[in-house]
Every structure is written in C-alpha cells, then in structure tokens.
Design a binder for these strands. Structure first.
Lengths: 227, 227
DNA sequence: TAGATTGTTAATCGATTAACAATC
DNA sequence: TAGATTGTTAATCGATTAACAATC
C-alpha cells in the first residue's frame, strides 16, 4: 500500500477551509458527481487552485491527473481528518438564548458533536429540558463529566461568568473548550481552547460597511485626492 | 491639531483582534483604570506587544511613553473604527433556532447592530413575535428594506435556501450580508459578505482534539519513533 | 535620573501564488 | 495525441516579531 506523505503541521487557515470544501463536496456528491478537480472547487470559492490542492494534501487523498479526486474519498478523508467521523460527547454551560440555540442545532450531529446535557444555575431552568436535553445545576458537572467521559465543554454564559465556568470544566477533566463568551480565558496548556466569537466576524462586517460608506463620500468629491 | 498617520489598509487579522481588545478595555475601564499599556494587553492574550501596538495604530490613538494609552480614548476609537458607535438596522432571514437566538442576543446592541424584523416563510411563524420582533413573510422584505433603509441582512436559513435568501436581499438593495449558513454564496462585487461559520471553529477544535489523542497514543509506545 | 513604553524601521516567518515537469 | 490536472518546488507576498532610538 502506498501512502502519500502528509504535511506534518497543518495551518489553521487550511483547517478552516476544509469544512468549506466538505460542505461543497457533499452537495456535489448529492448531485451525483463522482470526481471533482481542484480547479472546480477553487472556482466555487474564488480561491487559488494550488491552494485547494495543498489543502487537500493533508487528507492523504491522491488525485488523478486530468480527472481530479474521487468525491466520496475526499468527503470521507476530510471528515476523518477533522475528527467528524466519531461522535464526541459535550456538555454545554449556560442555557440562555445562545445556549438554547446550540442545544437545538441539529447539524452538530453531522460534525460529530453530541451535546448530552446543559448546565445552568438559574433555578427556573434547572430540571427542565431543552430540545430533549436535561438542564442540570453546575455543581453536578464535575461528577458527571468524569462518569460519562465527556471531554468537550461549550461555554455560552455571559462574559463575566466565563472564567469561572471554564475553571469548573478544567477541574472536571474537560479537555477541550468551545467558547462563545466574549472574554479572554485562562486555561492550562494541555487543554484546548477554541473561541467562536461572533463579534470578530461582526467587526469585519461593520468596518467594511463603514469603509464603503466613507469611500462613497470621498468619491462624491474625489477631486480632493488629486490636489 | 496633530493626527497620527494611520495605515491605509487594515488587515483582516487586525480587524478581528480589535473586538478582543475592546472587550478587555471595557472591563479594565469598569475596574477604574485610566491608562493601559500594550504590554499589559498583550499579556492578557499571549500576543506580542508590538503586534498590539501596531493594531492600535489603526485607531489613530497616540500613547504616552512609560504610561500607555488612555483607556477611554481607546474604547471610543476602536468602537468608532469598527462602526459600532452608530446603530445599524438589520433584517434577519430564517427564524429557526439559530435565528431566534440571534434575535434574542441582547449584546448586539453594544455592537451597533439592531435587528428590526425577522423574515420566514413558515406560516406558523409569520405573524408571531420573537423577543418583541415581528416575523414577516419573505415577500415583504424588498419593500420594507427600501422604505426603512435597512442595509444589513442576516442569513440564518438552512444551507439549501441560503442562496435564494441572499438573492432576495441583494435585489432588495441590502449592502452587507452576515451569513450563518454553511454554503458558498454568490454575490455582486459591491455587496459585502461576511461568513460567521461555526463549523470552521468547530473544525479547528475537533481536529486538535483528535491530534492530542493521537499524540497520546504515540507517546504510549514512543520507542517506535526512535527506531 | 533610570527604565518602561512608545513609535518605527528592519528581519523573520509562514502562507499564498507562480512555475513546471509528470501523468493520464 | 493534446491538453487539463496533479504534485511539487521556487518565488512572492503579507503578517508577525525583533531591534532600537525617542520619550516621559
């Protein structure tokens, strides 16, 4: 068996493009295509074809000249590479609006993420079920995470409670934290922290919007720039 | 009046760090600090102090040697730079779980984002109110966005409906789109598209988790690597 | 004053893009 | 066969980091 050598370290940029490819490939596969070329994929996203080729290299898949890559093979290898082939159990802390939405987000299943329970200290929430998932008091998290071998924690509490929620999780043996709170978090080196911050994305959007508007104004009397 | 010259083009990386600084600065300001140095900020995020200094340069704020920057000034200038000082009205399309959460996310107000109405074609949703916001049928979007001068559209529909939702928005004169659907979207060059894709963030998390686990296994019989 | 911090220029690092032979 | 595409190496580009004089 011949394996293609994979890059030893995969950049965050590449890692973030892989789900994009995956979504497209699944669509393409549903449409019945058997092969797909990097050129085609690149065109869809306005990427450089070489970049797509390099990205796909990390999956270990080998393409065929003039034909491209097997769609089914790519889908499988990307999922495998991202760890989306095996289900990961996760706990969610903070059953507010965002927490509720995450609990009800059915797509997570596709990405191997299985939220098994929610934790919140609001007595009005504790004991209820949200999308079929129990809401438990925070003091039960440590015990349960050890017993159920849950290694992923999702933080959807307000910023001011984020650090204490994370401390609790870390002490409970949680190995990876997906943080939705807009707060810088301190964690031990062996715990993985990934921030899913909506405000970062919003910042890019609103700044671009402002810039477009400012440019519009400048263009209105753009002679100034020629002085 | 002396202005500090600002960089002409601001990188996406810088743009994404600014909200992080802002959150921290607001906390620091609430705690009563009047000045803050780049060194302090950098320490909080494990960034390079020079990077922080370069990032802050885009705001036009000038610091004082040995003392740092005025916190209040920075907070104001970052907000101004990101366009968070003025409120932007937005329409949301797709009142599912994620859409609901976005409608209920009170923090958006702080970021100058004001969702004024939601649109959905589900007759069970149309006519209801979610967090006080009306849910209207999609065919009313074009008319209303023009009349109300709404320029931002938020897409929280399933992937397969994302493109048609976007087409509708673009035709209605929407100038910026914040997309939460995991689908590649086609838009005209003069419309701003910003993708807020949870799956990208999740991909980094689950891949890291898998890699950590694989490494653990390797370490268990790491003699192999010494052969 | 001494020394921490700013502002800025230069060096480094890493990611993207270009070039091109091999292949089907 | 002709030519599109792969795989890979080299060149470019841009962002991060290092160095250092000026300053308070």
């Amino acid at each position: 068996m011949i394996f293609k050598k994979k890059p030893l370290v995969v950049s965050r940029s590449t890692l973030k493009r892989l789900p994009l490819y995956l979504h497209l490939l699944e669509k393409v596969m549903a449409e019945g295509a058997e092969y797909v070329s990097c050129t085609q994929i690149a065109k869809e996203f306005d990427f450089d074809p070489t970049q797509v080729r390099k990205d796909l290299e990390v999956t270990g898949e080998v393409g065929t000249a003039r034909i491209g890559f097997r769609v089914a093979g790519l889908v499988d290898s990307i999922k495998e590479f991202l760890g989306w082939n095996n289900a990961h159990d996760a706990f969610l802390v903070g059953a507010g609006n965002l927490g509720k939405a995450l609990l009800g987000y059915r797509d997570f299943e596709k990405y191997g993420l299985n939220i098994v329970a929610a934790f919140d200290n609001d007595p009005r929430k504790v004991g209820t079920r949200i999308f079929g998932k129990e809401v438990l008091p925070l003091n039960r998290l440590a015990n349960l995470s050890k017993r159920m071998h849950v290694h992923i924690g999702i933080v959807s509490v307000p910023a001011e409670h984020a650090q204490s929620a994370v401390d609790l999780m870390v002490n409970a043996g949680i190995k990876a934290i997906w943080n939705f709170a807009p707060a810088p978090l301190r964690i031990p080196a062996d715990v993985i922290l990934e921030n899913a911050r909506l405000t970062q994305s919003l910042a890019v959007l609103t700044n671009n919007l402002k810039r477009n508007r400012d440019q519009g104004e400048n263009n209105a009397n753009s002679d100034v720039s020629k002085i």
